[in-house]
Design a protein around this nucleic acid. Structure first.
Length: 234
DNA sequence: GCGACAG
DNA sequence: ATCTTGTCGC
């Protein structure tokens, strides 16, 4: 199944595909050194099927921006909890193909294996691109956990019947935790380490935070071109 | 049947 | 996710 055809899938078929992909998920230590890390995110206007995808590249662990790529496309697949990848991955792949250089690791806005079928968007994207990936979500989708202490960098494991599937991290004092889980070709420990090293004073780690700022920027710009250019010269 | 439910 | 200003708290 090719991502370009995800929009034609029914939810049941999408779930069946996740069961297939699950067999290929590889959660093990990333041996190669991490020199370039990327952050990805998408944005869209309310009641619109136009998707704005973007990826920001940084050198690691310094985190200086070394490149970006964006893509604008359409989506027919609706947002369905648990099937987020079928809605966002196609657009992200468009941006992925425009990158000036390929990153050693990607951070996605969403879950990795902290998913009912271990196929959060980060895991799905990692599989499709065969690239190490980490999921960093702003809210929980699946798994049980105790609230981490209100101390910067405090962590708490997320479980699914005794299996550790993620880590809730207090990325910032007095802020809700972020939910980190390995996506593909990386371990739980490394995922947490990389995310902690990518924090810069905000609740959201830089890769994903910058990607979010980028896609919102191009969305506003594009919206100003397609819509509100009525009565500008009356 | 009821509650939960990434972005 | 997005719609949106001020406002309470650290």
């Amino acid at each position: 199944m090719h991502p370009a055809h995800y929009e034609n899938l029914t939810p049941a078929q999408a779930i069946a595909h996740q069961h297939e992909l699950r067999r290929k998920v590889d959660i093990k230590p990333l041996e190669k050194p991490i020199r370039v890390i990327g952050g990805a995110d998408i944005s869209f206007n309310k009641d619109s099927d136009i998707v704005y995808a973007g990826i920001v590249l940084f050198n690691y662990p310094e985190l200086k921006v070394i490149g970006t790529a964006t893509a604008i496309s359409k989506t027919k697949f609706p947002y369905i909890s648990g099937l987020l990848a079928f809605r966002e991955v196609p657009a992200l792949l468009d941006a992925w193909l425009k990158l000036p250089i390929m990153p050693d690791l990607m951070v996605l806005d969403g879950q990795g294996i902290a998913h009912e079928r271990r196929l959060g968007i980060a895991t799905h994207f990692g599989l499709v691109t065969d690239t190490p990936s980490i999921g960093s979500a702003k809210s929980r989708l699946y798994g049980r956990y105790d609230e981490p202490a209100n101390i910067p960098l405090a962590t708490s494991r997320m479980y699914d019947n005794g299996e550790v599937i993620g880590t809730a991290i207090r990325s910032k004092r007095n802020c809700n935790p972020i939910y980190v889980s390995p996506g593909h070709h990386i371990s739980m420990e490394q995922s947490v380490e990389v995310i902690k090293n990518s924090l810069r004073g905000y609740r959201i780690p830089e890769p994903t935070r910058q990607a979010h700022l980028l896609v919102n920027k191009i969305r506003i710009e594009d919206s100003g071109n397609n819509n509100l250019q009525i009565n500008l010269f009356d």
